[in-house]
Simulated scan of single mutants.
Amino acid sequence: MTETIKTPTSAEVRRWRRYLADERAEAAVYGDLAERREGEEREILLGLVEAERRHEQHWVDLLGERVGRPRPVAFRTRFRCFLARHFGPVFVLALMQRTEARSPYSQDADATDAMAADERIHEEVVRGLAARSRIQLSGSFRAAVFGANDGLVSNLALVLGMAATGVGNGVVLAAGVAGLLAGALSMGAGEYVSMRSQRELLDASTPNPEANTALPHLDVNANELALVYRARGMSEEEANEHALETLTDLECAHEEIREAAERAPEPEHESLGTAWGAAISSFCFFASGAIIPVLPYLFGMGGIGAVLMAAGLVGAALLGTGAVVGVLSGASPLKRALRQLAIGFGAAGITYALGLLFDTGAL
């Protein structure tokens, strides 16, 4: 009996072609990233390319003669490749993480179970690759985002609050510039002190490499070394046993303490970033955010027109910073952008309303 081959509908052909184009685009992005990486990361990215090629072949086989001409490279793919070339992989990987998470294969009968499973695992692979870049970026990025958002919101609130009181444009401009300088210097100094203090706390928990010189003189019966291991979380029995082994072989003990001193603080310090990096990022990004609500007054605008222009410029900037945070965190850029906008305008609106209560024209 001859098996009847089902003729796909036009809707199925369109869907399969879209899937084919998506697979080719994802393979192109991973391939572009792989060209700029080396070692293990390059091998992982090439493994993702190979997987996407397998998925691509599945849709080619289903389409057969209906495969048609390849679709032009989508704008989003060209944009991701641009980000990879000029800003490093973190933006691209964050975007690809969301793409893999939204794969429709698990709900599509024409995709195999293996393909759906691949896409689910690809999300975790990309998440792991992105985590490496996020760790390197996290310290200064946190300070930069906090600084920019604080500059936008606080100075907009200051400018709108002063404008609402009815004072002259010169006074509003002076208040905005003063708020910019005071806030940027305060943010920079605060971030530096905060980061240095946190590093000093971590350093205080680092094993002292000089402690190994005391080992040959320890009283084996008193076994003070066991207290060290118990303080690090071992049970009394485990600590006593480990201390006895350590004192039996002092050479190993020297090496163990040296390695602990070298390795222990590294993960925390790496994730924190540098104090100067955080301070400079905070200063620059606060200033870049705080200058935006002042721009209308710098160019001679005044009254309600300047208020609306300042609010519009800051609103666009808040949407932008929120979207960037959303992309890098693997979350929805739109939701993060709207959240930033709501928070910023909420704070500025309250300050503007308070300024109206102190209208100088009514005094």
Rank of each mutant, 00 (worst) to 15 (best):
Leu185Met: 14
Met187Thr: 02
Gly188Asn: 02
Ala189Tyr: 11
Ala189His: 13
Ala189Val: 15
Ala189Leu: 14
Ala189Asn: 13
Gly190Leu: 01
Gly190Asp: 14
Glu191Arg: 00
Glu191His: 04
Tyr192Asn: 04
Tyr192Lys: 13
Val193Cys: 03
Val193Gly: 07
Ser194Asn: 13
Ser194Ala: 15
Ser194Tyr: 08
Ser194Glu: 12
Met195Tyr: 07
Met195Ala: 13
Ser197Asp: 11
Ser197Met: 04
Gln198Asn: 05
Gln198Val: 07
Gln198Gly: 01
Glu200His: 12
Glu200Thr: 11
Glu200Arg: 07
Glu200Tyr: 04
Leu201Ile: 09
Leu201Arg: 15
Leu202Ala: 10
Leu202Ser: 12
Leu202Cys: 08
Asp203Trp: 05
Asp203Leu: 09
Asp203Phe: 12
Ala204Asn: 09
Ala204Phe: 07
Ala204Ser: 15
Ala204Glu: 13
Ser205Phe: 13
Ser205Cys: 07
Ser205Glu: 15
Thr206Pro: 11
Pro207His: 06
Pro207Arg: 00
Asn208Phe: 01
Asn208Cys: 04
Asn208Asp: 15
Asn208Ala: 01
Pro209Trp: 00
Pro209Ile: 04
Pro209Cys: 02
Glu210Val: 08
Ala211Gln: 11
Ala211Val: 09
Ala211Asp: 14
Ala211Met: 12
Asn212Pro: 05
Thr213Phe: 09
Thr213Ile: 03
Thr213Arg: 08
Leu215Gly: 04
Leu215Ser: 11
Leu215Arg: 05
Leu215Lys: 02
Pro216Asp: 00
Pro216Tyr: 05
His217Ser: 10
His217Gly: 02
Leu218Gln: 02
Asp219Lys: 03
Asp219Arg: 02
